[in-house]
């Protein structure tokens, strides 16, 4: 059963499509990398799934999932790092579904916060202000928050950009753990070696779908060449698209 179905989905900004008539299914429990050149619509697709961006055409269907079952790590977080929050405060936000706006943190919640911080290797940083964290440490803290969200569908937008190899290895461990637990994970990535090593399935985008399936069949030289050509072809003057979702 698919966790996500893109039905002739077109997403964009100011009538310019970034994702154009995408037709694809993401299987429940799958671990999928989304790859493609810059401007291929990868981040836009994730925004469409979260509902932050309304489709220009077509739609996203969720199978048995609800919007609350989605956890999303954006490429550029809007977090105000100067805001007086500690690592524990930030990670505890992941419990929103259980605590809501009013309920206090119980001992079991505190245990889970501690376990999530430990799982991403941030023990000892609990009381550190988020403004004093390095980029990699901040990414670890955000992964700990995602862990607590306990979501069935996890969306990661370039989660390993500008972090060192050790941090990346640790966070890939968290991703594998999610996959092992049967959660559906969609991650936008640029490093094909990482994709080949850790992601069984890949979707290649160049505004339109280039290929989608087992990673070794998608990441071919031919597909990469085609994706580049398709993105370059998009650079001309815009014209109104005649295709429309049924």
């Amino acid at each position: 059963m698919p966790a996500l179905v893109f039905q002739d989905l077109t997403l964009g900004y100011d009538r310019h499509p970034a994702v154009h008539h995408l037709q694809a299914e993401i299987a429940e429990g799958s671990l999928t990398a989304i790859v493609g050149p810059n401007g291929a619509g990868k981040s836009t697709l994730l925004k469409g799934v979260t509902g932050a961006l309304a489709p220009l055409d077509g739609k996203v269907s969720f199978g048995s999932l609800r919007r609350e079952d989605i956890a999303y790590l954006p490429q550029q977080s809007e977090i105000d790092r100067s805001f007086p929050l500690t690592v524990v405060d930030l990670v505890a936000m992941g419990l929103w579904r259980e605590t809501g706006p009013f309920r206090g943190l119980r001992p079991r919640h505190r245990d889970r916060i501690a376990a999530a911080i430990q799982a991403v290797g941030l023990e000892g940083f609990e009381r550190r202000a988020i403004g004093a964290l390095s980029g990699g440490q901040m990414q670890r803290a955000l992964f700990a928050r995602l862990l607590l969200q306990d979501a069935q569908l996890v969306l990661l937008d370039e989660p390993f950009t500008a972090i060192d190899a050790r941090t990346m290895a640790d966070l890939l461990g968290v991703v594998r753990r999610w996959h092992g637990e049967g959660r559906t994970v969609l991650a936008v990535l640029h490093d094909f070696d990482t994709v080949r090593a850790h992601f069984p399935r890949t979707m290649m985008l160049a505004r339109e779908l280039v290929a989608h399936g087992p990673t070794e069949k998608v990441l071919t030289a031919e597909n990469q060449f085609r994706a580049r050509q398709m993105c370059e072809a998009c650079a001309g003057p815009p014209h109104v698209c005649g295709r429309s979702a049924a």
Binding site: T50, E78, I79, D80, L85, L90
Partner: peptide, 8 residues
Amino acid sequence: ADPQFLRS
């Protein structure tokens, strides 16, 4: 601190 997260 993180309006994007609250919206999500």
